[in-house]
Design a protein around this nucleic acid. Structure first.
Length: 285
DNA sequence: AAGATTGTTGCTTA
DNA sequence: TTAAGCAACAATCT
């Protein structure tokens, strides 16, 4: 599942190659993946350029150089954004996606650039989207995001206010994009493990010390996951089609009935905030 | 072969 | 009024 570290990995990959190249072609293989209509989507993109590649939470934000429209891309659960250029192919070695066969049956949108490069939007489950909006529609969308957990606006005091004022579970708060942007099911579980707190604890039952541990764990886990270029459980790939590396470091997510790497107890899996939730009964209280 | 998988929306409930 | 809970969506795997 692309969460903040995965989307940030893709953002960085694409930010170095997409901007300021003229869009010469747009192929839409699945009309429901784009908005507004396929015709308008094509019309706006053709001849246009991507100005920059930004991110808010799990949402990619690509303003266009017409200064009127913005391309929004959400990968939801199984979305991929893969950049292919002949230059990469020639370069070979690291990052070269020479063995990718694209477009594939899960390619729903393809954007062709004048320099010969192509950007593929793939999505096996078809939950994700590529949406063009007028520039003035962006701010109401951005208002629905809480602070970026790795930005200076996310302070211990901010997190304390979020948690102490809520009777919901810690996990529900970590997953709530209005409260904190970008955390999904994998990192919510990993953050709770790193903090020694059970995900189903009521947020307003946490001590100050526990809140501080969650604050520090949030930074530690998200930074480490970005450094490892994200977690690939099944579908995630970076902007060049390569898998991430953080799955090697997961302590609880996807490890039900396996031994805790810290204490040896068996990792439990239950349901919290409507999601599969993993924790160590010994390390987390 | 029914159920689990999860991000987000929108509706219902408290 | 606010927020929490939950079904729905989609496709695939077990």
């Amino acid at each position: 599942m692309p969460e903040l570290p995965e989307v940030e990995t893709i953002r960085r990959d694409l930010a170095s190659v997409l901007p300021l190249h003229k869009i010469g072609g747009v192929e839409i293989y699945h009309a429901k993946s784009v908005a507004p209509s396929a015709a308008k989507f094509k019309k706006i993109l053709l001849g246009n350029k991507i100005q920059k590649v930004e991110r808010r939470g799990k949402l990619l934000i690509l303003p266009l150089t017409d200064n009127k429209n913005i391309l929004l891309i959400h990968l939801k659960m199984t979305g991929q954004l893969i950049y292919f250029s002949h230059a990469h192919k020639i370069a070979g070695g690291h990052g070269a996606n020479i063995d990718l066969d694209l477009p594939s049956k899960s390619t729903h949108v393809e954007i062709d650039f004048a320099n010969g490069a192509k950007l593929y939007f793939n999505d096996q489950r078809r939950f994700g989207y590529c949406k063009i909006i007028p520039i003035e529609d962006l701010s109401p969308i951005l208002k629905k995001f809480g602070p970026e957990p790795l930005a200076p606006t996310f302070t211990l005091a901010v997190l304390r206010a979020i948690l102490q004022n809520s009777a919901a579970s810690v996990k529900a708060q970590l997953l709530n994009q209005i409260k904190i942007a970008g955390i999904g099911n994998i990192y919510a579980d990993e953050i709770c493990f790193a903090a020694g707190v059970r995900p189903m604890r009521r947020a307003n039952s946490l001590t100050d010390a526990e809140i501080k541990k969650i604050f520090l764990a949030t930074h530690k886990i998200l930074r480490a996951a970005i450094a490892a270029r994200g977690t690939t459980m099944s579908d995630f790939v970076d902007g060049r089609g390569a898998a991430g590396g953080y799955q090697k470091y997961l302590k609880v997510y996807g490890r039900a009935k396996e031994k805790c790497r810290r204490c040896g107890a068996l990792i439990l899996k239950t349901r919290a905030a409507g999601r599969g939730t993993h924790y160590c009964p010994e390390c987390q209280k």
